[in-house]
Amino acid sequence: MLLIHCPYCDEDLPELEFTYAGEAHIDRPADPASLDDEAWRNYLFIRSNVKGPHYERWRHNHGCARFFNAVRDTVSDRFLTTYRVGEPRPDLESLIGKEGRE
């Protein structure tokens, strides 16, 4: 079972307290009415499905119930970091570099 760090509760907690909520940093279209079918497809259905560090959303629904973001390596399932909603997408280079030094 994964141990996940909730950036709001500031604790490492078991995966069962959390719900996965898909790829992160996918913006809702600002002007939905102007989108053509292709843009809708990309927004609704196309995902990067990365093999490696993946930006994703989680929700601590059996705890503080808040959404947050994470970077997890989908090959090892290891979390590189978790961060609050609204914070900028962390830079991968620095994350992986930090991992390497540990």
Partner: peptide
């Protein structure tokens, strides 16, 4: 519940 290539599962 999460995407993964780890070929293990929880």
């Amino acid at each position: 519940q999460y995407t993964s290539y780890s070929q293990r599962g929880g």
